[in-house]
Every structure is written in C-alpha cells, then in structure tokens.
Design a protein around this nucleic acid. Structure first.
Lengths: 135, 135
DNA sequence: AAAAACTTGACAAATTTTTTTAAAATAGGA
DNA sequence: TCCTATTTTAAAAAAATTTGTCAAGTTTTT
C-alpha cells in the first residue's frame, strides 16, 4: 500500500518547481537537486505537463516551470497525474475486477478508505509544503 | 497506492475460514470458493500461519482453520501479516530510504496518513465482515 | 546553421507478483 | 509397523510491473 517511486519523484519535483515559481528550470537541475534519474524524470515531467501542473519550454533556455500557484496544487493532483485514480483495491475503482462482485463485504471498506485518503491528500497543497520547510 | 493481489486473496481467505471457525478446510476448497490460484494461496496461508491468524494441519485430513475468534482479527492484522507494516512511502517506515531525510516536508504527511489508515483498518474485524454478508 | 533542451518511443534491467514443481509430513489402513 | 494417498511446505521458474536508459526527433535561441 505504497505510492510508487515515480510518484515520490514527481512530488519532489513539483516541490522544487514550487520553490521558484518564476523560474524556468532544466530537467538536469531538478534531477541533481532531488536525486532523481534524469531520463526517468523527463518522463515524469511529461505526465505533469499533460495534467497541467507544469509548463514546458523547449530549446535553448528551455526547461520547466510550475503552471499555477503552489497553493493551487495539492498532493492528490500530483498522485492522480502519475498513478491515475487512487484506490486501495482495483475493485474500488472498477467493479469488474472484483470476481466476487456483488456479495463482497470488503468492497465498501476500500471505497470508504479511498474517499478518506483522497480527502486528506487534497488538503495538502504545495504552498504549505514550502512554508513548513522554511520553519 | 493499492493493496496487492496477494493481500486481497489473504483477506478473502480469512473471510472464508471465519465463516466456519470450527472446520479444518483444505487449501483446494478455499481456492475454489474464493477464486484464488491454489499454490499461491498455499504461500499466503503460510504467512497467515506465521502471524498466528490461521492454524495448519498436515497430512490426510489436514487443512487450515482460523486460529482465533473472527472478531479478534481485523483487516490491519491481515495486511500486516502479508505486506508488513503499512506505509504510504517507504520513508515513513524507515527514514534511511529518504534520500533527502531531515528537510523533507512531505515525510510527516505520509506518517500521519499512515496512522490514519491503520486506525481505520483496525476497526474492521472479520466478525463484522461476515455479519454484513448475511444481511 | 549550430547548439541546447525538451519529446517520444523502444528497449533493458530490476523488482514484484504469480504459477509451477518437487519435497516433506501425516493420518489411516493393510 | 510400514505403505500410500493426501496435504502442507519450500524452492524455483515464469509472468507482469516498475524503474531506468538511450537514441532519434523536434523546437527554440543565438
């Protein structure tokens, strides 16, 4: 029941960009600052760009920049961008995965737990994560 | 952020055994009843046995039986037995995995979320899961 | 035109999950 | 007691997923 390495990297990356919202930063710099394999990070940034969390600029002087105010981005946004919908069990997203379907008494537990976790993750925005760093 | 297939199987299995606490049931029967690959289930049952959630009997007339009252076993017990300590991020269990260690502002979020999820899972015992089935 | 930097897709390595196979143990009967 | 069918146990193999790499292509600035 863990987030993946990829998601962890994505969060670090958004954190880095959030700390300098006005700067366009190269993949290489983020990779070094946050100890993330560069080519893997490139891919992650693509997903974040598609989710409109970061903007990309190509060519010389290119790089990535946060696409909106850090307080407008929360942990759930990033996790969703990378992993897709959060679920504890695949059947909590799509019931066809639940071979026992209708009479599965555990199913509702996953659904509720999922809602709970989502609610919590939505509360943590990146402005807050930066602030707590400065303390 | 999902539980594994293995954990899902383990829960179904404990559920099956909880429904007949006085019976010793063969792997094969559980496997068929709950749509779990038989040999994979064997492995899962070993882990459950080590965690003292089920008892095993070998030889002819052998099989598995629930080791304590269903109300004494909760979802967290089973997940812990299979996956080890629940964490959202590996660094929430052991800080040495967190390359950014001391100044990682996300770390406390995982720790708290973990506590939350554990608390919820601990509340769901198998007596309850059976009851809701009968309704 | 050349250099710098992102984009994309294919591929490879590592890890985890699932399945298969062979070994060990036991109840029960000859 | 000893054999055998039955069942668990354990190790190994296969499949799937995750993580990481690389190279060719595209865009932008100088």
């Amino acid at each position: 029941m863990e987030i993946t390495r990829e998601t962890d990297y994505a969060i670090r990356c958004v954190l880095h960009l959030s700390e300098a919202p006005n700067d366009v930063i190269m993949v290489d710099e983020i990779a070094k600052a946050k100890s993330i394999p560069k080519s893997f990070l490139s891919k992650i940034l693509q997903k974040l760009a598609k989710a409109n969390i970061v903007k990309s600029y190509r060519g010389v002087k290119g790089g990535f920049q946060i696409a909106k105010a850090p307080r407008e981005i929360n942990l759930l946004d990033v996790i969703d961008a990378i992993e897709g919908p959060v679920a504890m069990n695949r059947c909590a997203v799509n019931k066809k995965f639940c071979s026992l379907s209708s009479n599965c008494t555990v199913h509702p537990v996953w659904v509720e737990l999922r809602k709970d976790v989502e609610k919590k993750l939505k509360k943590i925005d990146f402005a807050r994560l930066i602030v707590s760093k400065k303390q």
